[in-house]
């Protein structure tokens, strides 16, 4: 029996339009790694979803509201569109899967959720708060518009921290896609930085003891000359298989 991997659904094409939308790239990456992808919808059933699935995959998406890590927006210009229902579902599932000892893997926003769920904090805007022009193709953070031409990914390298679990999976230096303007500021309890960009931005995290990890880039997505990267998904599904036994 394949491990059942729960994928958190994304809110709409714009937030609160009344639809769920979920990229098939995620499902394909999970399937190719040997898992059965399933989608979670409703925070009211968080406990039932934990019973149903063997592992949790946290997807990319819009910024979470910053109160999740103890801040408030002081200026209107700081506020990016957020989805309360998406935040609720991501955090409720992440906390419950961690408590149940079931594996969690997050990409993009998903890595940030994992960090904040364990008590970490975020930079709300890398350029403004660190001064680094972190490579990003300028993903739209507001005004999603059907007529907008698709954004292209930017790329940069990451250095993988020797001795981490991810160092056993990835090369010492990897080229990755980059599409984010938020980043990990302080690490959550038990987390270590497993990879960093040349400007010092944390690009991957893993837990010292729990079977959870995350990357800031999108390994599920082919971008430019970079094919999608199944290694992290294979590792994740392997962790889920181990957790079942």
């Amino acid at each position: 029996m394949k491990p059942k991997i729960l994928i958190v659904s994304e809110d709409g094409f714009a937030m609160d339009t009344g639809h769920f939308v979920i990229s098939l790239d995620y499902g394909k990456a999970i399937s190719q790694a040997g898992g059965l992808p399933l989608v979670a919808f409703d925070v009211l059933h968080a406990d039932a979803y934990v019973d149903m699935a063997d592992g949790l995959f946290l997807t990319g998406g819009p910024d979470m509201h910053c109160y999740r890590y103890g801040e408030i927006y002081r200026d209107r210009s700081e506020i990016t569109p957020f989805s309360r229902t998406r935040d609720d579902l991501d955090f409720a599932l992440c906390q419950r899967f961690l408590q149940a000892g079931k594996p969690v893997f997050g990409v993009g926003r998903g890595m940030q959720v994992l960090n904040v769920a364990l008590g970490g904090t975020l930079y709300k805007d890398i350029a403004r708060e660190t001064g680094s022009p972190h490579p990003d193709a300028g993903a739209p953070t507001s005004g999603f518009d059907a007529t907008t031409a698709p954004a292209q990914f930017a790329f940069h390298t990451v250095s993988v921290q020797p001795g981490t679990r991810l160092a056993g999976i990835l090369d010492p230096v990897e080229k990755v896609n980059s599409c984010h303007h938020e980043a990990v500021r302080t690490l959550g309890d038990g987390l270590i930085a497993a990879a960093a960009a040349p400007d010092g931005i944390i690009e991957a995290i893993e837990h010292r003891t729990l079977p959870c990890f995350g990357v800031q880039w999108h390994p599920e997505r082919a971008a430019g000359s970079l094919p999608c990267d199944g290694r992290l998904f294979t590792h994740f599904v392997h962790l889920c298989k181990e957790a079942i036994q």
Binding site: G18, F20, I22, L38, L44, H45, M52
Partner: peptide
């Protein structure tokens, strides 16, 4: 809208109705 990547969509009315009926909704992605 951002990357034009192939996705599945579902109106929330379906999951809300299944929930109201007493079921646990999930989506077939593969």
């Amino acid at each position: 809208r951002q990357f034009h990547s192939k996705s599945l969509t579902l109106n929330k009315t379906y999951t809300a109705a299944v929930t109201a009926g007493g079921g646990l909704p999930t989506l077939a992605l593969d």
